[in-house]
Computed example of a mutant assay.
Amino acid sequence: MLDLGCGGGRHAFEVYRRGSDVVAFDQNENDLADVATMFAAMRAEGEAPHDASAETVKGDALDMPFEDASFDRVIAAEIFEHIPHDTAAMAELYRVLKPGGIAAVTVPSWLPERICWALSEEYHTNEGGHIRIYTRAELEAKLKATGFEIGPHHHAHALHSPYWWIKCAVGTGDDDHPLVRAYHRLLVWDILKAPKATRVTERLLNPLIGKSVVVYLRKPTGAGNTE
């Protein structure tokens, strides 16, 4: 399983915990060092099955150092909105996925992202920031043109959208603002406790203001690779 653009590694940690052989891939050396440390800690504490493996690899999403058809599964969470040549990165994802393999791609949802852009120019002009806002139709069209079969989709993380709206309104770098700190504490509490009330609320709100849209893809069986 490839976690493409792994960042802090939360998806990689979970699939490792579930027994996958996982490769956490990113171009940020500091993030990868932290991820490698966590992999080692999980291994030492027995938090992953003994026959599962986990490693980090540094590289460019436009030219990944993997053979064709290397992975059964790929997660690409919140990366394509950062990449100028997004279709080239999609082609690389297609190349390294095995025929019949499944990928999960997420990008920021159109409406919550549009609100963030309207509230803050800094949000989308910082170096390495978001350079485009996808509609689901646009994302799926680009992935289909790459060669993927488009599967189901859903929205997620509705409770995170107001947090980013607040940050954009008060300044994206002002993590000490009282409203930002209070809402962050709420999110941490929700993640740790997962109370039924907030879980139900988020499920109801996800189709409307879910921060992310998740699209599932399959590389056709017997497919070749894009050029």
Rank of each mutant, 00 (worst) to 15 (best):
M1Q: 00
M1R: 00
L2K: 03
D3L: 02
L4G: 01
L4Q: 00
G5A: 10
C6R: 06
G7A: 08
R10E: 14
H11L: 08
F13Q: 02
E14F: 04
Y16N: 01
R18N: 06
G19L: 09
V22K: 00
V23G: 01
V23P: 06
F25T: 07
N30Q: 13
L32C: 06
L32G: 05
L32K: 04
T37K: 15
M38D: 02
F39I: 04
F39E: 12
A41S: 13
M42L: 12
M42H: 04
R43I: 06
R43L: 07
P49F: 12
D51S: 14
A52R: 10
A54C: 06
T56D: 05
G59P: 07
F66T: 09
F66N: 07
E67K: 15
D68T: 15
S70P: 04
D72C: 09
R73N: 00
V74G: 06
V74Y: 07
I75Q: 07
A76C: 15
A77M: 13
A77P: 01
A77G: 14
E78C: 12
I79F: 01
P84T: 11
P84S: 07
H85Y: 10
H85L: 13
D86C: 01
D86K: 04
T87A: 12
M90E: 01
A91G: 08
E92Q: 12
L93W: 09
L93Y: 06
R95K: 13
V96P: 10
K98N: 06
G100V: 01
G101A: 03
G101N: 04
A103L: 00
A104D: 11
V105H: 04
T106Y: 01
V107P: 01
V107Q: 10
S109M: 10
L111K: 10
P112E: 09
E113D: 15
W117I: 02
A118D: 09
E121H: 12
E121M: 04
Y123W: 15
Y123V: 00
H124Y: 10
G129V: 00
G129F: 04
R132P: 09
I133G: 05
Y134P: 03
A137I: 09
A137K: 15
L139S: 02
L139I: 02
E140D: 12
L143H: 03
A145K: 15
T146D: 02
T146Q: 13
F148D: 03
I150H: 08
G151L: 11
P152T: 10
H153C: 11
H155G: 05
A156N: 11
A158N: 06
L159C: 06
L159D: 04
L159G: 02
Y163E: 01
W164P: 11
V170K: 06
G173M: 05
D174Y: 05
D174T: 03
D175Y: 12
D175A: 10
D175R: 12
D176F: 05
L179S: 08
V180S: 05
V180N: 01
R181H: 11
R181F: 03
A182L: 15
A182S: 14
A182W: 12
L187E: 02
V188E: 15
D190A: 13
D190K: 14
K193T: 15
K193P: 00
P195R: 05
P195E: 09
A197Q: 12
V200K: 13
V200R: 12
T201I: 11
R203V: 00
L205I: 03
L205F: 07
I209W: 05
G210M: 01
G210R: 03
K211A: 14
S212R: 00
Y216W: 15
K219Q: 08
T221P: 06
T221I: 14
G222S: 11
A223M: 12
N225W: 10
